[in-house]
Computed example of a mutant assay.
Amino acid sequence: MQKIVYRKYVTLNNQEAGFTLIEMLIALSIVLIICSLILHSMIVLQRSKREGNFIHPREWEIFYAQFKREITNSQRQEISNGKLLLYQNSDVITIEKYQDKIRRRVNNQGHEVMLQKITGLEFIKNGRLIVIVVTDQNKRSFKGEVKPYVYE
């Protein structure tokens, strides 16, 4: 009868080399870098999703400055069907809501976006003032008043 002997230790041939400590550290560092990039991109996406539905205060300031310039350069102003018509020399400039944007058109041609991410636009003529009220997609309201130089 033969005895079966089990070896307690496994020996590796020279051809069967395992991972070294340096290789494991490099692999671990690559995995950590990838995980940190994924985490950072998720944070950026979440922030942009949260902040994507409202008008930034700087955007409003730029729009309002353009709006004031348009009104002060016009000779006559009219509000008709939710649109502001500005008469400058022989041109008619229309400022109106279009989808989720405020657009500017000259002689009913072109399409210049002045402000986006809006849900409401209202023009009010209050005596000599022209008041604009804009509501963004987060229901925040922005209001501005302009007094034209030339009056009707």
Score class of each variant (00 low, 15 high):
I26A: 10
R103P: 02
N53Y: 12
R7Q: 15
F142Q: 04
I33M: 13
E112N: 15
I102Y: 05
R128N: 11
Q46G: 10
Q137I: 05
L25Q: 02
R58N: 01
S90H: 12
V133C: 07
E145S: 06
E122C: 03
M24I: 15
L28V: 11
E112D: 14
L37Q: 07
K49A: 11
F54I: 01
V92Y: 01
Y6I: 11
R105P: 04
E122G: 03
L84C: 03
V150I: 07
E122F: 09
L32C: 11
F123A: 12
L39M: 08
E78P: 00
I79G: 09
N53D: 10
N14G: 13
V10M: 14
F142A: 03
I26R: 07
E145D: 04
F142N: 03
Y64I: 06
Y87K: 08
H111Y: 14
N108F: 06
R47E: 07
S36F: 08
T72G: 05
Q46A: 08
S90F: 09
S90C: 04
S80N: 15
M24H: 01
E59S: 00
E23Q: 14
N138Q: 10
R58P: 00
E61N: 13
P57V: 03
R7Y: 05
S29V: 05
L45P: 04
V146P: 03
Q15F: 09
Q75A: 10
F123M: 01
I71W: 00
L37W: 13
I130M: 05
I71E: 00
D136W: 02
F54A: 12
V150F: 10
I22R: 05
I79S: 11
K101C: 03
E16H: 10
L115G: 04
I102F: 02
E61G: 09
S41D: 02
E23V: 08
G120P: 10
R76L: 01
K68N: 11
R7A: 13
Y6N: 12
V44E: 01
I132V: 15
S29N: 01
I38Q: 10
K147Q: 09
I118A: 13
L129E: 12
V113S: 04
E23G: 04
R128Q: 11
E70S: 04
T119L: 13
V146H: 08
V10T: 14
S80F: 07
G144N: 03
N89S: 12
N107L: 06
L121V: 02
K97C: 04
G120N: 02
F142Y: 14
K117E: 04
R105S: 07
R140K: 11
K101V: 00
E70V: 02
K3S: 08
A17V: 13
K83M: 12
Q109L: 10
G110M: 08
V146R: 02
I93L: 15
K143H: 06
W60Y: 09
V150A: 03
I30A: 10
Y64H: 06
Q46L: 12
I102K: 03
K143T: 08
A27S: 14
F54K: 14
R103K: 12
Q137M: 00
I93S: 01
I93G: 01
T119R: 15
H40V: 02
I22A: 07
E51K: 06
G18D: 05
Q99S: 12
N126A: 12
H40W: 10
